[in-house]
Design a protein around this nucleic acid. Structure first.
Lengths: 342, 342
DNA sequence: CGTTTCTGAGAAACCGCTTTCTCGCATGGA
DNA sequence: TCCATGCGAGAAAGCGGTTTCTCAGAAACG
């Protein structure tokens, strides 16, 4: 069979222009002065042949491929979507692309996926909220340069970008207590989730700060269905005196609110409900959901900023934690039968 | 100053094991029989040196890099998120990764972004709902293998995976008319959006099918804010006799519903509202939003299936259009003052 | 026992580009 | 006028793998 129709290479261009490959390369990269006449001829040949340099070959020699990877447990989660978007945009501004790897919540897949992704990218953004800490520590060393998103990792030389969930929960509790609530409930997230652990710490700290306040725990989850499923338990809690509920995140809060309404409960009349993350839909819920706003895009952008520094041989920059901002909306209000002032 | 600490290469392994590079390569790929003793030694050396083959070098020789790219106008849109997730999972199952490029709704960036992405990937999934058709046609030829998502492109040798918006709108109108509505309104999407054009065709076809039915058009958009902003106009329409509204998509419908409620309107009592796409939040809206379900993940998976065929040298497979499925929920109901039967 | 075939390991070419090295030539200084 | 410099273009050496090619030794056969 005839020779196959391979793509045109730099050698073809060189031949066509009657110059050396090196000259073509020089014209392409423009880092050395080249005879204007040669430049002209080369450019003409490139245009004539429709030549496009091979990114792979370039990568091989440069040792970089201007691509970073982001590993996430679930692309369907608005938090990660926002981070991905911010990361992608920020990286693109510097000429980098983002490879995305969804581990579909399979914790066991995270490590191999991360390693695999790292092999074909210059750096990594790792979102692994449920990976055991020891494993994560090992992994992080192996896949450097890497930045870890949204989980604390003390005493490790890795940049971290995250959210101060502890403080966020405290602030949220403050908001509710300020409204007059004294008996709250927290619908927990996934048991192994690092950010759930952080939130629980926030609950504990809040309890230490507010005497006479109770915060029950109701096992929940991270998705709207979980909120839906836990509505019965929440209703029981409300009958037992709980006047405000904090859900692990907005998805749970949204699912919960919808179900509660169907069960005949008025939010916030009978019960205040608050979420966390301030997903885009929160402000369009009925009632508009009170939530703790988290700068999703900014987290992605900062992750890139740190990665860029690392790639450039810079130091591991300091951990940055964003403090969630209260978005007080309609789903929280003073308890109907205002408790006895403390 | 000293020699820098480069990664170990296949040559290092060969030396360490006292065999040739070729043998190491053979052991790695296992496509030829090799002396068991050599296999053992090579594997020992690989382990001892912690060797990992360079994906880039492999790509250079193989001409593939097992990565595809997906170009989307907005990663924050639940539709694209779902498609990306489905694509990513399906591709991963075949050992492919996905590079994602968000053009941030800048139509002018789509072509260069696609070309650039294609240069470093084996194939492309293109979501460009607003790119002018002529430009898209040119682009598609240039970046093949490619599959186009969610827009018709007649007479072109390109696999297309999409949604039958025309039929979807018709079915949705059928639903509303079946409930007794005679005077509807459609809140349009972005003017240049191909899928909005499809929906409008659906509106026209529905009108042709249902005598005595009116469908007004109200300029809208594609985001919740647009729904919010258009609420006044919708309210006017309602006062003018409109009893049901179809929004371009769920995001608009959600924003609209929330605002309408604040304006004192009861949905569906005073006005039925329906969306499109059935985003995850639709079923958790208040009232739960009637929508046309679109198999987001499946679209992504099918896009991959077609791409895989193309990559493997197979034919351009037939266009596949998914017919949206009605998810009748609480936001649509019979009009309060049932119209005179036609 | 000699010759042919087969097997498998090593040498070398190659993938497409960048970068160093070499060298001819034009320029500037003495 | 001659030699030291500088500049720019081409040749060639990698980058790190895979794959073809070559060839030695073993196995098979007459």
């Amino acid at each position: 069979m005839g020779e196959r129709n391979r793509a045109t290479t730099i050698a073809d261009v060189a031949t066509h222009a009657g110059v050396s490959q090196a000259s073509v390369s020089r014209v392409l990269n423009g880092k050395q002065s080249v005879d204007p006449e040669i430049v002209r001829r080369v450019q003409a040949s490139i245009a004539a042949l429709g030549y496009a340099p091979s990114a792979t070959a370039r990568s091989l020699v440069s040792g970089r491929n201007d691509t970073i990877a982001m590993v996430v447990p679930d692309l369907e989660n608005p938090l990660f979507q926002g981070i991905l978007k911010g990361l992608s945009l920020a990286a693109a501004a510097d000429g980098y692309r983002v490879l995305v790897a969804d581990t579909a919540e399979r914790v066991d897949d995270e490590e191999p996926t991360a390693i695999e992704a790292r092999q074909r990218c210059d750096a990594l953004v790792l979102c692994a909220p449920r990976m055991p800490e020891q494993q994560l520590r090992r992994l992080v060393e192996r896949v450097a340069p890497v930045v870890v998103v949204n989980r604390p990792l003390p005493d490790l030389d890795v940049p971290i970008v995250g959210v101060d969930y502890v403080r966020g929960i405290r602030d949220l509790v403050d908001h509710l207590v300020g409204l007059g609530h004294r008996h709250l409930a927290y619908v927990t997230g996934p048991e192994t989730s690092a950010s759930n652990a952080e939130r629980l710490r926030g609950v504990d700290e809040a309890l230490a700060l507010h005497h006479g306040v109770r915060i029950d725990r109701i096992p929940g989850g991270s998705r709207p269905e979980d909120g839906d499923a836990v509505a019965g338990a929440v209703l029981d809690a409300q009958r037992a005196g709980v006047t405000a509920v904090i859900a692990f995140n907005d998805l749970v809060a949204l699912g919960l609110m919808t179900r509660l309404r169907e069960l005949g409960l008025d939010v916030p009349g009978d019960l205040s409900v608050a979420g966390f993350d301030d997903v885009p839909m929160a402000r369009y819920a009925t009632p508009r959901l009170t939530s703790m706003s988290v700068p999703r895009g900014e987290i992605g952008a900062q992750a890139w900023a740190r990665l860029r520094t690392l790639i450039g041989g810079g130091p591991v920059e300091h951990t940055v934690l964003y403090r969630p901002r209260l978005e007080a909306r309609e789903s929280t209000a003073a308890p109907a039968r205002a408790g006895v002032p403390a």
